[in-house]
Design a protein around this nucleic acid. Structure first.
Lengths: 108, 108
DNA sequence: CAAAGTACATTGACTGTCATAGTAATATGA
DNA sequence: TCATATTACTATGACAGTCAATGTACTTTG
């Protein structure tokens, strides 16, 4: 057991995981990153670059919107908010995951 | 539910699935393809091109060996045989999959 | 005051999947 | 018989998600 997950097995789940976190409330990039590391007990080592490209993708698709926090001093934070579209996509992705799991289990 | 699996969710499983089939005995490219379609009730629509690149990869890594069948007439068949290395890799991949499943389930 | 942590972002490389195309033989059905 | 489907293998180039590397800039900690 390597203790980390190959990026090929992660592929395609990043967006869903981000949406999942945003369902619990608005959050910003770095915090989302931290939440994922925490939630997976440090086992899911997805990289910041991967997340930022996920944010861009999700925003382009209308799954999330963004706004700057009102921190007047210190690092500015870009907050993300999940849209109705995003919630739908999350649900669908979750179902796809359950389905995929069962098929892979049959084949492996 | 689309009824098919997105290629991002499949990614990384092809090799393991091929190894799984070869554990049951030698087989050739096109038959392996058919077996996978069958086993998944047509739900796992992986493409031939994907499989052939998997064969190449697996052979380069020493996971499988190949030999031509002795069909004197008709389409020649290239048979694949799993090696000890391949069996090891299969086991490891299977464990990785179980592990990945649990982490993704926690995050999704 | 240096180092670590927070917070955002870009670039270009890598890799697995797949669309497309091609070759060539056999079997089937009209 | 002739067209079509099926079997069987292969190469090429595009695409997309992940990530390593790198950068900026501010704050906190030792």
């Amino acid at each position: 057991m390597t203790g980390k997950i190959s990026s090929d097995l992660l592929r395609g789940h990043t967006d869903t995981i981000v949406l999942r976190i945003l369902l619990e409330g608005d959050s910003y990039g770095y915090e989302i990153y931290k939440r994922i590391v925490d939630k997976s007990n440090g086992l899911y080592e997805l990289k910041e670059a991967t997340l930022y490209s996920s944010y861009r993708r999700l925003e382009q698709e209308g799954c999330i919107t963004s706004y700057w926090g009102d921190e007047t001093l210190g690092g500015r934070r870009k907050y993300y908010h999940i849209t109705a579209v995003g919630a739908d996509v999350y649900q669908r992705n979750k179902e796809d995951w359950e389905f995929t799991k069962s098929v892979i289990d049959k084949l492996i």
